[in-house]
Computed example of a mutant assay.
Amino acid sequence: MNQQPLTDKEQKIVEEFEKARPGLGAIAENNIRNNHLTGWADTIADTPESELVVRDGSSSNSFMYRRIGG
C-alpha cells in the first residue's frame, strides 16, 4: 500500500466521500492507496479538476445517492 501523502485532488475525493456518508472517506482513501489493484489514483489524476464535483442523482434501483464526477 502506498503511504505517500495524497495529492490535493485525491484529498478532495476522500473529503467528499466522507461528507456524503461518514466512513466512506476511509474506503476511498484505501482505494486510492491501493492504486495497483483499483486504478483509483490513476483515474483521479486523469480527471480534470473541473469534473471533480459532487452531484445528487438516482440509480436504476431508485435510491438517491451523492455522486462524485460527471
Score class of each variant (00 low, 15 high):
26 A>N: 10
62 S>R: 10
18 E>G: 04
60 S>T: 10
25 G>R: 02
54 V>M: 14
61 N>L: 07
63 F>P: 02
31 N>I: 04
8 D>H: 12
12 K>C: 11
39 G>Q: 00
47 T>I: 01
59 S>T: 08
15 E>T: 09
33 R>Q: 00
8 D>P: 08
38 T>H: 06
47 T>S: 02
47 T>K: 01
60 S>E: 14
34 N>G: 02
59 S>P: 05
60 S>V: 12
53 V>L: 07
42 D>N: 09
66 R>S: 14
66 R>M: 09
11 Q>T: 07
69 G>D: 02
36 H>E: 11
39 G>E: 00
11 Q>S: 12
1 M>K: 11
27 I>A: 03
43 T>P: 05
68 I>G: 05
68 I>P: 14
46 D>H: 11
37 L>N: 13
11 Q>N: 14
5 P>K: 03
30 N>P: 08
17 F>S: 04
34 N>T: 04
33 R>T: 00
20 A>E: 05
26 A>K: 13
13 I>N: 06
15 E>S: 11
59 S>G: 13
1 M>W: 05
34 N>W: 07
4 Q>Y: 10
31 N>Y: 14
28 A>K: 09
26 A>H: 11
29 E>Q: 12
22 P>N: 13
4 Q>V: 02
43 T>L: 14
64 M>C: 10
36 H>C: 03
47 T>D: 00
15 E>D: 13
39 G>P: 09
54 V>C: 06
30 N>R: 15
7 T>M: 04
62 S>T: 11
11 Q>I: 01
19 K>I: 01
14 V>G: 11
44 I>W: 13
26 A>T: 05
41 A>K: 01
58 S>K: 09
70 G>Y: 12
62 S>N: 13
69 G>P: 06
41 A>I: 00
5 P>Q: 02
